[in-house]
Simulated assay, not measured.
Amino acid sequence: MKLSDFVKLVKFRLTFLVVFSASISFLIGSKVNGYINWENWAILIVGGFLVTSAANCFNEIIEKDLDRMMKRTSDRPLPAERMTTGQALVIGLFMGILGTYLLQKLNLLTGFLSVFSIILYAFAYTPLKRKSPIAVFVGAIPGALPPLIGYVAAHPQIDDIALILFGIQFVWQFPHFWAIAWVLDDDYKLAGFRLLPTGKRNLPSAVITFISTLILLPVSLLPWLYNHSGMYLAIVSAVFSLIFLYQAFNLMRTLEIKAARSLMFGSFLYLPVVQLMFLFDFIGK
């Protein structure tokens, strides 16, 4: 197996972003404890990479025939027949078992949440993508679990900080998903995916995307409102949320793919900036 095929199989860029999100939340949880266990941080990164890669691997096995229909995914190793389903299944099971083993060594809650995220992403969100736009809501749950997993890996309880980290990433995913779905709608339709709010590039879909971005503004300020961060986070979150909101408004105004692409790239910048500011400006409980 070529390295390039493995990179595509595990969706390396997506996996990297997931692990980054979890690692930042681990450091926030460590600040609650008052110390950082760097060995556990390394275990989280390796285990998180393996578990996320396994979920993506199972997703590609299930969608192998659908990926063949879309230009964006037709060169993945399974639809391009450079790898068999059996080979991918063995790789996915190995990564899932090893990753879960490593994460449960940190604590059982971390291990449980990791298994739950794999099941929900691969076996609930994946098949729903062809049935209903509700798939985006379902997919937002495992998509928001990485910061929760990272936090409880360091501080093994689901408290208000854990829920805030989960909430920010959960709400963020709606404009993020829908911007991507708007840009790739033509390709998605080839495989029968229905991910836009109304199933179409139209004003109601853009309005719903704008509303989700609007909700993100107060949610991003929750760390400050609950006295877990200082004014720096509040200012940065407000500024980036307003920029993000303007991009969503521009999509609603123009209904153009160009505007959706701008919103999509804005989403890639928004989340790491807010999470890093939460870490740097964290003031505890």
Rank of each mutant, 00 (worst) to 15 (best):
residue 45 I to W: 07
residue 55 A to P: 14
residue 32 V to Q: 09
residue 30 S to E: 10
residue 62 I to M: 07
residue 63 E to A: 05
residue 41 W to V: 06
residue 45 I to Q: 11
residue 39 E to T: 13
residue 64 K to P: 10
residue 25 S to G: 03
residue 27 L to K: 12
residue 27 L to P: 14
residue 37 N to C: 07
residue 26 F to L: 03
residue 49 F to H: 04
residue 26 F to H: 08
residue 62 I to T: 07
residue 48 G to F: 02
residue 43 I to F: 14
residue 53 S to K: 01
residue 46 V to S: 05
residue 57 C to A: 08
residue 53 S to F: 03
residue 54 A to W: 01
residue 39 E to H: 14
residue 19 V to F: 07
residue 28 I to K: 08
residue 34 G to W: 05
residue 64 K to E: 11
residue 60 E to H: 14
residue 39 E to L: 14
residue 38 W to T: 12
residue 21 S to M: 11
residue 62 I to W: 15
residue 36 I to K: 13
residue 29 G to P: 04
residue 45 I to G: 09
residue 57 C to F: 11
residue 58 F to Q: 02
residue 27 L to S: 07
residue 24 I to A: 04
residue 46 V to R: 06
residue 43 I to S: 06
residue 30 S to I: 10
residue 34 G to N: 08
residue 22 A to Q: 11
residue 44 L to C: 06
residue 59 N to F: 02
residue 64 K to A: 13
residue 57 C to W: 06
residue 63 E to R: 02
residue 21 S to A: 15
residue 60 E to D: 08
residue 51 V to M: 04
residue 64 K to Q: 11
residue 19 V to P: 01
residue 20 F to G: 14
residue 61 I to C: 04
residue 21 S to R: 11
residue 57 C to Q: 03
residue 22 A to F: 02
residue 26 F to T: 03
residue 43 I to T: 08
residue 40 N to Y: 14
residue 55 A to G: 07
residue 22 A to S: 14
residue 31 K to M: 08
residue 23 S to N: 10
residue 27 L to F: 10
residue 38 W to N: 12
residue 19 V to W: 06
residue 62 I to S: 09
residue 50 L to S: 05
residue 39 E to I: 14
residue 35 Y to G: 13
residue 44 L to A: 05
residue 58 F to D: 00
residue 30 S to D: 10
residue 37 N to V: 12
residue 65 D to Q: 07
residue 62 I to D: 05
residue 40 N to T: 11
residue 64 K to M: 13
residue 32 V to E: 13
residue 29 G to V: 03
residue 61 I to A: 02
residue 64 K to D: 12
residue 53 S to M: 00
residue 61 I to V: 04
residue 25 S to K: 03
residue 44 L to R: 06
residue 42 A to Y: 13
residue 50 L to R: 05
residue 66 L to C: 06
residue 64 K to L: 11
residue 66 L to V: 03
residue 44 L to V: 06
residue 33 N to H: 11
residue 55 A to F: 00
residue 32 V to H: 04
residue 26 F to I: 01
residue 28 I to R: 06
residue 23 S to I: 10
residue 57 C to T: 08
residue 30 S to V: 09
residue 63 E to G: 03
residue 44 L to P: 15
residue 61 I to Y: 01
